[in-house]
Nucleic acid binder design. Sequence first.
DNA 1: ATGGCATGTCGAACATGA
Length: 256
Amino acid sequence: MKIVTWNVNSLKVRLPQVLEWLADNPDVTALCLQETKMEDVVFPKADIEAAGFHVVFAGQKTYNGVAIIARAALSDVVINIPGFIDHQVRLIAATMQGVRLVCAYIPNGQALDSEKYPYKLSWLAALTAFLKKEMVVYSKLALLGDYNIAPHDMDVHDPKKWEGQVLVSGPERAAFQALLDLGLTDSYRLFDQPEKTFSWWDYRGFGFRKNAGMRIDHILLTKELVPLCSACVIDKEPRRNERPSDHTPVIASLLI
DNA sequence: ATGGCATGTCGAACATGA
């Protein structure tokens, strides 16, 4: 199976691109979306099911919102982090063919002196506590999403320019490490990768053309899944579309 | 140092993203 994360930055705008991409990638089993930016009542469930997919989703107006589109059945759906009071819809989890898929849109944080920054860190702490419990139940678990964290300087086009800023700050990277310390592994770094490979590029200033990007979208795997992972790639093609999302899909292949 | 582009909001300037 292939499992994918893609921040689409509005599913209303990007639905045709999502369906086209799925048609072009028939071996993709599950696609986790972030920033759908729509309430459940207007979610295009019928369109997605008509195209032959299963789908689970949770959203809100204007901001956030997550969904999982899959070619196989999805069960045991959880929306948001249990016990963590949150007015924003940023997480959905479901089980597909024995694999627990956790789709997360981790807060951006805006800036280190913003009130959104401590929210980001508390959200990450709650996520880590939630996953610790999930991993007891589900040995085959993948955490897919927009983490809004570039784990290492090699994941940043210009580390000096970004030094100390949001997405790369020490506490954020420590929170990423805390996820790894649960026993999770960054599937992208299981394999040799080209230098300067990113999953997001700023719309402004020809960011994509200049490859001024960041690798902030990740797929972490439990120990049970690591030996089954045969590849992890970033698909830059959709970034060349007309009206692209600023993020591109990250794809992990699993021998399941 | 700032804004640059894109999206969504009840109808234009603003909030947010990363």
